[in-house]
Write a protein that binds this DNA or RNA. Structure first.
Lengths: 339, 339
DNA sequence: CTGAAAGCGCTTACAG
DNA sequence: CTGAAAGCGCTTACAG
């Protein structure tokens, strides 16, 4: 049982007793059509269950209404929120989005980019700073509009439009807050690998702020992972390693997902949070309010990033000029219980 | 600065001094080509940075390598896992997937289905039992291969291929386990709205098992939400309402996300889990091991569902016959600390 | 207000 | 082994 050919405009035309061009005109409103003919065409469409073929349309118009979104991991609370925000805003603008989950794998990044380019997507949204520069060049070469959310638009010589959050400032907020509550030494740092720009900036911002206050830097309490694996386990293991060298008074963790593991281990060890060790995360994922103690963390305006980002890339797609193609948004610190 | 036309096979052909058909043949390997010509064509492709146009290809071949996935909410731990599993398996088979996040909104369901149909996706994967039957009819009408994961394939008269988990059994495992640890009464039930079949089955299974053991049913301890909102808050509020009527000895919650809220409130109230109130969730999301106490829950073989589901729909897409189009997988109970 | 016709970039019999 | 040609289902000037 193979599907018999789907009805086309030609079938509709025949049934309505008009020409195929006329059917196109009534569907797209591209010409004034008499009410009588219009009605006949609409009827024929309904009777046949005709559905316009976007593939043919795209080929002729040389434009699609599809977007590609690259993220490292939909399962992370942060990226799933980003995915939702991007997809929702795209839909509202009439675009449908391809989801590309790269797992930070360079080969996958390139495979997806190749695929998206072949699909002639109207634009590509990068949810993080791609690791594979070759893939980036391919995008540039194709002249496909591209945007990076939550990442620097600067890759060596090439620059792409971006909407990012001030990561230096995020870290500064953390150190300032710790200062304000009297924690001025033994501040630890835990992070997943500093693979993309956002994470690197957080680390730089952290170090700079520490220096700014004239704190001594004890990297016994630093634990930066060198490869990706389960985020929660990363936090869990990091606590393990740090505690072998001493006890920090506070730990700044560059993502909530990892902070969850940190808290888990600390609690198992009966270390009091925040009395003995204060913990501050980053991202403000929904779960931050569920753990005990509730997580103090740096909040990122994800929805706003996605919204402004989408507006920007759509302008570029439409060939309009965008005044500012490096939008910088501000993070805020949400103080709860863990610090 | 508008993009100049991208190179086509025709451009490649001209540069290589061959015909456009020949270029197509070397790209697709659809004809034996002399090594000499092949090399010239490959060179031309590289020099021009030619990328095959999948839109044109799809139109001519009347098939795309795209899939649509409908889920209610990427942000939920359960559906983000499903999304990842489906997307990964689709990619491995050469398909790229459109993500459609419906929020259980019937209008959105229909909008997405219309859009996917226009895009002529090769297949549609439903991540839950669609609420809008009209949308379902449209899929059927278009004869687009469709598959439902984690939901019944039976909608009134129409049946669609499905891979689901035995939800009756999941609930039975819960009641049996409670029985085995001596909890034989005052068993509560908390659920988000029973909007799709999976949830309905869990409820039925729960009631049946209670009856099976001859337990009395006290629906003072039941709290089934009537509309969607934040899952964690649902759990939180449900505890509130139930505790006003008395204290159950155990609560079965039909999803971990909601169970997180249940635990949160119980802990705030200093109710001991599991000594005073045992809590059992459903789904076994990654966070289940992070909360304190670690969540006892029913585990679903999501990856396996996605994998088997993808295999099935791809067979259907390729016109092969599938022997069993109603696969039923088995859940397992993971006993941790909360019960 | 409606139609005839070209063409988007490919694939695919078919010839030679 | 390579090419000439039709055609996938549309949109879009252009005529009338």
């Amino acid at each position: 049982m193979r599907k018999s050919r789907l009805p086309t405009m030609w079938d509709v035309a025949k049934r309505a007793g008009v020409t195929q061009a006329t059917v196109s005109h009534v569907i797209n409103g591209t010409a004034p059509i008499s009410e009588k003919v219009r009605k006949r065409v609409i009827e024929a469409i309904d009777e046949l269950g005709y559905v316009p073929n976007a593939v043919a349309r795209s080929l002729k118009q040389n434009k699609t209404n599809t977007l590609g979104l690259l993220i490292p991991d939909v399962q992370s609370g942060y990226y799933s929120e980003m995915t939702k925000a991007v997809e929702e805003n795209a839909r509202k603008k009439g675009y449908i989005t391809f989801l590309c989950n790269t797992s930070y794998n360079q080969q996958l990044e390139e495979l997806y980019i190749n695929n998206l380019l072949q699909q002639h997507v109207a634009g590509i949204v990068l949810g993080y700073g791609l690791l594979n520069e070759k893939a980036l060049f391919k995008i540039r070469n194709s002249r496909t509009p591209v945007l990076i959310i939550d990442g620097s638009g600067q890759f060596g010589d090439i620059h792409i439009p971006s909407v990012e959050v001030d990561n230096h400032k995020g870290s500064r907020l953390v150190v300032e807050y710790l200062h304000s509550i009297g924690i001025t030494r033994d501040i630890g740092f835990i992070s997943e690998p500093l693979q993309h720009s956002a994470l690197q900036r957080r680390f730089e911002g952290f170090i700079n702020s520490l220096k700014h206050f004239g704190y001594s830097i004890n990297d016994d309490f630093f634990n930066i992972e060198t490869k990706q694996y389960d985020k929660i386990k990363m936090g869990y293991n990091a606590v393990e390693r740090i505690l072998q060298k001493g006890r920090p008074r506070a730990i700044f963790v560059t993502s909530d997902q990892v902070a969850l593991g940190v808290i888990k281990r600390l609690k198992e060890l009966k270390v009091k949070i925040p009395e003995e060790v204060a913990v501050i995360g980053y991202d403000d994922v929904p779960l931050a309010t569920v753990v005990t103690p509730r997580l103090t963390t740096v909040s990122q305006p994800i929805y706003s990033m996605a919204q402004q980002g989408l507006n920007m890339i759509l302008k570029i797609i439409e060939g309009k000029t965008v005044e500012n193609d490096r939008v910088l948004l501000q993070p805020t610190l949400v103080v709860r219980e863990s610090a």
